[in-house]
Design a protein around this nucleic acid. Sequence first.
DNA 1: TTAAATAGATCAAACGTTCGATCTAATCAA
DNA 2: TTGATTAGATCGAACGTTTGATCTATTTAA
Lengths: 259, 259
Amino acid sequence: MTLLGDVAAAGDVVARDETGRAAALGAGGKHRARRADGAASRARILEAAGKLFADQGYDAVSTRALAKAARVNLSAIGYHFGGKAGLYQEVLRQLIVDSEPIMGPAAEGLRMGVAGARGDKAKLAEVMAGFIRHLLGAVLRDDRMRWPMALMLREFNQPSPWFPMLLEQRIHPLHNAVAGLVGAATGRRPDDAETRLLTAVLIGQCMVLGAARRVVWARLGWDAYTPERVEFIVRTLTPAVLAMFGLPAIDPDAQGGKP
Amino acid sequence: MTLLGDVAAAGDVVARDETGRAAALGAGGKHRARRADGAASRARILEAAGKLFADQGYDAVSTRALAKAARVNLSAIGYHFGGKAGLYQEVLRQLIVDSEPIMGPAAEGLRMGVAGARGDKAKLAEVMAGFIRHLLGAVLRDDRMRWPMALMLREFNQPSPWFPMLLEQRIHPLHNAVAGLVGAATGRRPDDAETRLLTAVLIGQCMVLGAARRVVWARLGWDAYTPERVEFIVRTLTPAVLAMFGLPAIDPDAQGGKP
DNA sequence: TTAAATAGATCAAACGTTCGATCTAATCAA
DNA sequence: TTGATTAGATCGAACGTTTGATCTATTTAA
């Protein structure tokens, strides 16, 4: 039994959310909740699966542990997602959807900030500082982005068959937006190889603090990221990154969140 | 079962080290080599296990796949290492031992370079450039360090019971040496929290190019790291990192390897 | 012979998946 | 308002396979 074959078969597992079902059953959708509300079970499975997959990896998570964590019957996984592989794919799809409200405005704000700066290095520095604070907060502090980030990092050095989807819909848009900032700061075109590389390094050096958190903690004598420690990281890293891209230093106390 | 397809045929396990057996037999040592030379089998298992664990992770690798890749019988794993977990521990231990000839002199050279610079920013810039070239080469190009780096990255965000050993014997010595350079460049004490953090970021931003190589490749239209592309990365990253730590730019053509 | 090392067989446990039975809520004919 | 019907959802119990570990027998060099 090769997984790839099953994957191909499970590839057309569509979202079975309520709206889809209601639409399929008729325009005048009246009924909502069934017995124990299948949509709720589905959501619980997705939630538990995201955390477990992110924490332990695909192989290390058994369907039984999954069912137990989501407080559903074992067969519910097969019923709702077609199997373990289908569930993983849906977790990734949902990750992209859920991170849109956080990442989308951030990328848009980045583009607006760069356009508004019109080459003014001081203003670009503000935009850069805001982005670093935003990204570090998302990676290290924001609990909503904790396991999604961990799961993405797993995809990075062990891509699943759905890594291209993640790349297309989450990585490229974010990198393109940041490349606009990096290009403006260094005076290069946003789609230069150098700009793209430095963009990857910039984003990567923020995410590595999340990926290799055990190392960071061990080096600094920490046992967890607290808001105060994240703030320390932001204040330490921001001047270094600004200097890295030839941007002027800014007043630390003026560092606000993203506009 | 894994989501990944057949990764890296696993058939390219290096031919058995004949010198090892010959030396054991001829050196007048007591009884070392028996029937088919147990030391050679042990070494083959270690080699294959390192690559497989690094590529697929501990759980995704079965003892049968290990035995097949190492061209030994299944029971040889239990005989030589006591079991799968014992094998993994030994792989980690061997990783530390094998990386010593590469990492040890690098750390020592770093200390010597920093001491020799005596605060001269231009000389510190040379040392920093040499270190970046060295580390990037080890992470991205050196085939001997390919799977060890991948395995270490796995330990970083999913520590095994032997992570403390790795931390103690490999991470801390390297970071301490680099912290000396970073401290000298930024004018801080080497054991400052800021210095330690920036040190982790510096090392991390080099390693992330190896960890998230698929992303880097996708952004730059690459499909592998070639020596030319690694050189491009070194030349692009070096000036940025020098600026990051307030060191003067250096002549790119003068960038040599580590002294 | 003696002990190291390999080969092959076998073990219980855990794996992902599948199945039919069961239950609930909406639907429809009366 | 009924009672029967249907589809959605859950459940327990298996399925066949693979896992890591273990066992005995055999082979080989000392």
